[in-house]
Design a protein around this nucleic acid. Structure first.
Lengths: 121, 121
DNA sequence: TGCAAGACTGCAAAATCTTGCAGGTGACGA
DNA sequence: TCGTCACCTGCAAGATTTTGCAGTCTTGCA
């Protein structure tokens, strides 16, 4: 099989993994550092079961790493660079929407770019 | 609705659009310049109907633009930057696979990065 | 040891995507 | 005008994802 085809499929798999708002928000949360499942569930306002399922996917594809401490499971980004790369896509979202007013994209960029994401909403 | 949530959803929509090997290959083909539907179908070895459907999606989200000339419809990338951004993700694919041997990813990077993609396979 | 907290997994229903096919539109040439 | 070429759209079957729920596992603590 040609390299070109392999690369497309592998890339598509990774895009598929990121093609869910919950999982993008998880990556965003983890950008600030490791967090346990309950903490993430509270931050996103979702049931822990769902968070756990998403984390299971991200973990299976080695985008996050797990550390256990007592009863808690702490997760962190395996490669924080991915968060920066996602931020790079914001201009494309902007374009895609063809907004006259790009304020909320700018706001989002600021939120994703801020040192401590939890200081803003 | 918070900006953060909007951005996640819009980003997820765009990732979803890119989460298909055929569509990634279309973007790759168009990186070299505009091409008509039949040309793309031949390049990818797929039926024109399917190509047309994929292009319809990409067009609806303004990732490609169309120009008609006689019976042919020529497509081009609305924002060629997207192809560069996709190339930036190859290291993540690499990591995701945790390959001992990254040769075929290197080969893919070379293919995506080459000036004229049609000179290589 | 018994119980509860924190998290994971399996499963099935619901939602979403993909794909081929049948049929339709507009442009070109005889 | 008629036929063909290049392409698009609608639709339904099939495949894949998402989601909630029930049940399980491990750890900490009394």
């Amino acid at each position: 099989m040609p390299s070109r085809l392999i690369a497309s499929r592998e890339l598509a798999d990774m895009f598929k993994l990121l093609a869910h708002a919950d999982r993008l928000r998880l990556i965003e949360e983890l950008r600030a550092g490791e967090k346990d499942v309950t903490g993430l569930a509270v931050a996103l306002g979702l049931p822990t079961t769902r968070i756990s399922q998403h984390l299971g996917l991200l973990r299976a594809h080695r985008l996050v790493e797990e550390r256990r401490d007592g009863r808690s499971h702490f997760y962190r980004l395996a490669h924080p660079f991915i968060a920066d790369w996602i931020i790079d896509a914001l201009p494309l979202v902007d374009i895609r929407l063809r907004l006259k007013d790009t304020d909320h994209i700018d706001a989002a960029r600021a939120l994703w770019s801020v040192r401590d994401p939890n200081s803003a909403c």
